[in-house]
Amino acid sequence: MPVTAPVPAPQPQLAGFLLSGDLARPAPLTVRDLRAWPQHEARVSFECATSGTQHHRFEGPLLHEVLCAAGPAFDPARRKDRLRFLIVVTGADGHHALLSWGEIDPDFGRAAVLLATRIDGTPLDGSGPQLVLPQDRCGARHISGITGIRVDGGYAGAAAA
């Protein structure tokens, strides 16, 4: 009888997303990658149109820190250039959210927007990170299963600045 080698157990699939756009270091990232940044916690309540009020505890890095590490292409010669940048977040279900850099920048809106790696203590490795905006009353911008984050500095009105 032939001897067969044991088949290794399949590794769980890690959901990931592409960080792209006007960045010096665009990259594919996973939930595991996001855990390399300092993890912040947010207890959030928000209204959901389909299931009423939701209460959750999210953990993950700040979106601002992750994007800064990717090197946004701000023009240092232009005063307040970062304010023309937009951030588009796309989820696996096709939902999108649009944020401005000014919302998440500590010098302006200071919104502590998270890229959640855990919800209520449960890791999101398989489903992908979730965009969490603790300040939002409505949960519509809480994007689950992020598949892409694009940073875009091409706002047409920027030429007038």
Results as ranks from 00 to 15, higher is better:
residue 56 H to C: 09
residue 58 F to Q: 08
residue 83 L to T: 10
residue 50 T to A: 14
residue 116 A to N: 03
residue 13 Q to R: 12
residue 113 V to I: 15
residue 42 A to V: 06
residue 117 T to K: 03
residue 151 V to Y: 06
residue 24 A to C: 11
residue 28 P to E: 15
residue 129 P to R: 03
residue 97 A to G: 00
residue 39 Q to A: 15
residue 47 E to C: 08
residue 102 G to V: 07
residue 93 D to A: 11
residue 62 L to I: 06
residue 90 T to A: 14
residue 78 R to A: 05
residue 107 D to Y: 09
residue 71 G to F: 03
residue 155 Y to G: 01
residue 8 P to W: 00
residue 155 Y to S: 08
residue 141 R to T: 05
residue 87 I to N: 02
residue 12 P to R: 04
residue 102 G to A: 15
residue 80 K to N: 12
residue 72 P to V: 01
residue 114 L to R: 09
residue 12 P to D: 04
residue 131 L to H: 00
residue 118 R to Q: 13
residue 23 L to Q: 06
residue 69 A to I: 02
residue 155 Y to K: 03
residue 158 A to W: 08
residue 73 A to H: 09
residue 86 L to E: 13
residue 89 V to L: 09
residue 63 L to K: 01
residue 57 R to K: 13
residue 44 V to G: 03
residue 34 L to D: 08
residue 137 R to T: 05
residue 13 Q to P: 02
residue 3 V to A: 14
residue 4 T to R: 11
residue 116 A to L: 04
residue 28 P to W: 10
residue 10 P to E: 01
residue 40 H to I: 07
residue 151 V to A: 05
residue 17 F to M: 08
residue 98 L to N: 03
residue 133 L to V: 15
residue 40 H to S: 12
residue 157 G to L: 13
residue 138 C to A: 08
residue 157 G to M: 09
residue 149 I to Y: 00
residue 4 T to C: 09
residue 126 G to P: 04
residue 98 L to G: 00
residue 19 L to E: 11
residue 71 G to T: 02
residue 72 P to R: 01
residue 41 E to D: 13
residue 33 D to S: 13
residue 43 R to H: 13
residue 48 C to L: 11
residue 77 A to F: 07
residue 160 A to C: 13
residue 96 H to C: 09
residue 66 V to T: 01
residue 131 L to I: 00
